[in-house]
Every structure is written in structure tokens, then in C-alpha cells.
Write a protein that binds this DNA or RNA. Structure first.
Lengths: 349, 349
DNA sequence: TAGAGCCTGGACAACGTTGTCAGATGCGGG
DNA sequence: CCCGCATCTGACAACGTTGTCCAGGCTCTA
């Protein structure tokens, strides 16, 4: 076997397709390894002439610093992880973007993953991110037990939960006032004369869903209205189930006169169902939706500020990394009732 | 200075907050370094008893493999980069998600970045991703000169462009039939009796915008309708400009009777403007928008399949990494005209 | 002109992992 | 009882970078 195909060399060759390293640059420029490092990182202590020679070699070879090695040496990856439910959900788009902007401002990249609302997948993703040694994590939890994160937290991985609190561990969390928002939304319907009000929401194991349900119940109780079981429907919020739930509430001898929709997906489906009915049913939805103002009637919603959630969480994350922040806190952002017509319809019976 | 605070040790201590390494695990389990590696990676050649001891040490210490070191050694990061325009744009949500799913199926993580339609920022992002040694890149280009990628391509970074082709280099690209879609959409308006048709689109330096404009012109020419300059408006698609453009086309002595909206953002704004007008103006938009069917009238659109774009691109990427694919290709996905009413309105004059 | 001090450049180790290879151990057969 | 073989284990180098430290050359002053 000729010398040029010894194992090490063959490995290196198949590796990054023969990417040049600082060593190669140093050899070509006729300088030491560290000098190249200095030029690459803009460190002082290199004469212009030397720098020119090094830069020339870099350009000629198409050298690009290998950040994996750098990370290994420095201990910081300058990247943060974002685990959310579904990147395709319009609610998470602005949230992700906000997190990304803050990351960018702090010189970090964003690694993204969708848990698809599956706790196992969430854990798998989070741990994969920890193995990459992301500096921090922004997590929209799917599960309700995050003890698996304890070793990571202890090891110094900054972590902020968003939209829903962590389970079984003490961690920063940024969320909307789901309870208050839902309560206000339902109270709005009550104020417009409704008593039989339906609630269609997500599975109650999801914190936001439970809180919104609690808000609904509180508003009803405040008004002295006993809630009937048939008015509430909790479960996955795919169109089929929501449609069935809505149809059910709207039919029967004592149909609801108004519906509170527990999230954006529910709202959209309910709007569709209502459009097929002649009877006018009032509607308030949680989460704003695009074009809500252009529908007939406009859709009244309890809006949360997704971008603010993301921004706040990411900023807290970097303050944790600074060392500025130590004690985990729970931050609740207010919601805003936007009236557009659908919530102001009077009871139709 | 006491021995325990020598530089190396202090560094290690401040590093990942004292994360245990394989060495620590090996020491605790009383085995060799490589044996730990074998257990962690499920390699054969370890007796059950030894494995148990090692596993115990791992759990006790909360050890998690450092993938940075692994990457450095193995040369593959098992991650791909996705550079797009704006994560918050509803068009890119499903696209990202599709890319992520394919990445996941191939055991890779997704690093995400928004270029904000700024070529410099695109380049900065792409090069940062290359420095991380992502295995591949899915890029929705903002710029039109991608020669800066040449060394990376040569070094074996798999690359697929989406939605718009790369500039000045030969690379895989997956895009929609923007020309054909726009032509069909405009032809649809012509078929319903319109002649004075406005076009509001993005800056023509953006490939999709240029193609759609070309489609518009082609449809008009096919119908023998000379296009007037005042019917076309190209530029940034923020609401203010689009609103002004629409108002202009709809006023004056010879207003347009129909509008072709060049992308989802334009469509939304135009819908708003039209809602304020009493005269009924026909509308066809490029890109589907949520709730388009529930507006009065429903919005007729030329829909592209964002998820399919993402999926196709990501699959090609991994086939490049397999070595299955070599020659760059241009793949064009068809668009679909969805008629809902707004495009079928007759001319109002 | 010699000595002090500064500036530039380079040798070397270390980061945590994995691939290679050789050594140790145990077992069975001659 | 010893040898050979298979199996399991561990020492060591290498991946590409950065931090430390020292050597050598230069300038400036006395």
C-alpha cells in the first residue's frame, strides 16, 4: 500500500471533500498555524504584509474556518434551539421569527424542530439539541414532565419555556394570560346577551387549553350561568373533530347561541361551519387570524402577541447566558380582545 | 497557585458547566475510554456486565455525548441549513415544515435562518452555515449572484435552491411554474371578459416576480391586448405601497376592471382595498391564502404547493448526499388555479 | 554601542470524540 | 499442560481549532 493512502490520509480525504485547514493555509502562506488563526479571527499582532500573505492563501484555497473544531475548543456553540409544535402553524411563524431575530442580534444561529405535539418527540429533539451543546433552549413543551432536562439545566444549558409551563421542574416560562383572555372573551359574549355558550378547545392536558377552559368556566360562573356538559368539547383540534363538535352544539333541542373557539385552528373550522348555517351564531376565537376583519361578520378574537412571546423568551434566554438572570420566573403577557362583529351578534333565538 | 486551578482545569470547569465526559464515565465505571464509546454508540463487543456498569455511570453522572467532538471526528454534522426569506410568512411555514420532516426522516436536524430578502444577509447566513459544516443547504435565494458558494460546492456541501434559481452558478433548483401559473390566472380573467387588468407584484429583480410578470404579459399578448404602463406596479410588497398602487389603478378616467396580485401579501392588501370600494373588481391572486374561500366573494387564486416545494428540495438534497444525484437539474412544479368567485366577476363598466 | 523592552510569530497542548491496533483474558483441544 | 484462537478491552493518535508561552528581532534610549 503506497504511503499516500494510509488510513488517516484516506479518512481526511473523504471527509469534508478535502477542505483546506488552517494548517494548509499556514503552509501555503509560509507562516505558523497560530498566525493564520489570528488573521481569521481579526486578532492583533500580525503585520499587514503577513496578513496579506495569509489572506491570499485563504482566498486561493477557499478556506473556511471549521466551527465544529472551534466550538469544541471554546465551549460555546453560538446557537440556540427552538422546539415548537408545528412550524407550519401560522401562530408559530412570527414566534420563531422573533426568536431568530433576538438570536441574530446576539450572534447566534437557530436550530429548529417540531414536536408535532408528541412528548417523546419533544424529548428526543431537546436531547439531540443538548448533545449539540446549544447554548440555550426555547421550548414550547408538548409533554408535561421535563425532569429529563435536569442534568442539562445543571450543566448550564439556558432554558426558557414558552406558551406553556414546564412540568415537574423549575424553569423560566413566558406565556399569555390564557385564563384572563378566555374569561374576557366569554364575558364579552355574555355581555351581549348570550347564556348558552359553547367551548371547543384542545386536549385538556395541554396547559393553554386547560387555562382557557378555566377562563370560560370562570366567566360563566361570574355570570351565574351553570355550564352544561354538552356545551364543552375538548380534544384534538383537527377540522373533522371540531366540525362534528360544532355541529352537535348547534343542533339538538337546545343549541348554543354562541361559540368560544379555543385556538386559531378551531376558529377557522368554526367559521366554516357557521358559514353553512343560516342561523346566526356569535363567535369569539382565541388567537388572531389573518383576514379575520374581512369576513362577514368580522371575527372577534382574543389576540395574543406571538412575536412578543418569542422575543421575550429569547431575551430572557440570553440574559440567562449573561449571568444577569438567575431565578426562574413566570412571565405572563396580556391578551387583547379585538371586536369585529362576530362576538357582538345577539342571541338568535 | 494551587494545582486545582491550573489554566486547563479552570477552563474545563467554566466550560459547559463541568459536563462529564467519556473519560469521567470511564473512570467511574472502571473501564477504558473506548469501551464507553462502544456502549454509547451501541457497538458490539461489550459484555452485558460491563455495559451495565458503564450505563450506570452514565446515568449517575448525567453524561451526554458531545456531538461537536463527534462531528469533528466523523466529518458529518447530520444537520442541514435552510435559508429563507421570512419564517413568519405563511408561505414558508409549510415549506419549512416539509424540509424538517425530510431532514428528520434522514436523521438530520434543521438550522434555520431568515434573509429578510437581503442578499448580504443571505450570504452571511449561508456562509455561517457552511462554517458549521452543515451537510447540505436548502436556499431560497434573496440575491442573484451565488458565486460565493463555489468553494463550498466544490468542498461537497449539497445544495438545492428553492422557489427561485441560483445566480451565476449551476445548482439544483425546485420551483413553481410561476410563468404558467400567472399566465393561466390572467387568462382566466380575460376569459371572463376583462381587458384592463392590473398587475401588482414584487420587485422584478426577484425571479418569481419577473416570471409572473412575464406570464401576465404573455396572457395579455395572447389575447391581443396591449398593456398600458399604468396597469403594472412592481416594488416592495408592503401594505402601504400596494395600497397606493391599487388605489391608483382603480381611480382615474380609465380604471382597471380586474387585478392580478403577484403574491399572498399583495392579495391580502388588495382584498382590503377592494372591500372599501363599492365598484366590484375582479381579482386573482398568486399563492393561496387561508380563509380565501370564506370571503365574499371567495378569492380565486393560483396556488402553489409550498410543502411539495420543500419536500422535493429536501429529498433531492439527501439524494445528493447519497451520491445518487450528480447533475444539477431544474424541477418545475405545476400550479393550480382555484376558482372561488373573485376571478369570475364580470367587468364592472 | 549595549541593554531594556516591545512586538511579531510559532511550537505545543488541549477540547471530547472515534478508528486502529495490540494486549489481555478465557476457553477448548491436542 | 500448553498452545492457539476468539472475544473483549484499552492505549493512542487524530480530527481542526484556540490559548499559553517563549524565542527572536526590532526599536529606542542612555
Amino acid at each position: 500500500m503506497p504511503e499516500t493512502t494510509r488510513h488517516a490520509e484516506r479518512n481526511a480525504a473523504t471527509r469534508y471533500g478535502n477542505r483546506p485547514t488552517m494548517k494548509d493555509v499556514a503552509a501555503r502562506a509560509g507562516v505558523g498555524l497560530k498566525t493564520v488563526s489570528r488573521v481569521v479571527n481579526g486578532e492583533p499582532g500580525v503585520t499587514p504584509e503577513t496578513e496579506r500573505r495569509v489572506q491570499e492563501a485563504i482566498d486561493a484555497l477557499g478556506f473556511r474556518r471549521n466551527d465544529s473544531a472551534r466550538v469544541l475548543r471554546k465551549g460555546r456553540t453560538a446557537s440556540i434551539g427552538l422546539v415548537l409544535e408545528d412550524l407550519a402553524d401560522p401562530f408559530y411563524g412570527p414566534l420563531s421569527r422573533a426568536v431568530e431575530e433576538v438570536a441574530r442580534a446576539n450572534g447566534a444561529l437557530l436550530i429548529n424542530g417540531s414536536s408535532a405535539e408528541d412528548p417523546d418527540r419533544e424529548q428526543e429533539l431537546v436531547l439531540a439539541l443538548c448533545a449539540r451543546r446549544v447554548d440555550g433552549l426555547v421550548v414550547i413543551p408538548a409533554g408535561d414532565d421535563h425532569r429529563y432536562l435536569e442534568p442539562e439545566l445543571k450543566a448550564g444549558v439556558a432554558t426558557v419555556f414558552v406558551d406553556r409551563p414546564a412540568g415537574q421542574i423549575d424553569a423560566d416560562v413566558v406565556l399569555s394570560d390564557n385564563f384572563g383572555g378566555a374569561r374576557d372573551g366569554v364575558a364579552h359574549l355574555i355581555a351581549h346577551g348570550h347564556r348558552r355558550i359553547g367551548f371547543i378547545g384542545d386536549m385538556p392536558r395541554i396547559h393553554t387549553a386547560a387555562e382557557r377552559l378555566r377562563g370560560y368556566r370562570a366567566a360563566m360562573e361570574d355570570a351565574g350561568i351553570p355550564v352544561e356538559d354538552t356545551w364543552m368539547s375538548l380534544g384534538v383540534t383537527d377540522p373533522e373533530r371540531v366540525r362534528r363538535a360544532a355541529e352537535e352544539m348547534l343542533s339538538g333541542p337546545d343549541p348554543v347561541t354562541a361559540v368560544f373557539a379555543g385556538n386559531n385552528r378551531v376558529t377557522v373550522t368554526v367559521v366554516r361551519v357557521l358559514a353553512e348555517h343560516t342561523r346566526r351564531v356569535a363567535l369569539v376565537g382565541f388567537d388572531d387570524i389573518e383576514l379575520a376583519d374581512l369576513l362577514q361578520p368580522g371575527v372577534t378574537v382574543v389576540a395574543q402577541d406571538a412575536a412578543a412571546l418569542g422575543r421575550t423568551a429569547a431575551e430572557r434566554l440570553f440574559r440567562q447566558l449573561d449571568g444577569t438572570l438567575v431565578t426562574p420566573e413566570r412571565i405572563e403577557l396580556p391578551t387583547r380582545l379585538i371586536t369585529r362583529g362576530s362576538g357582538e351578534l345577539p342571541p338568535a333565538d
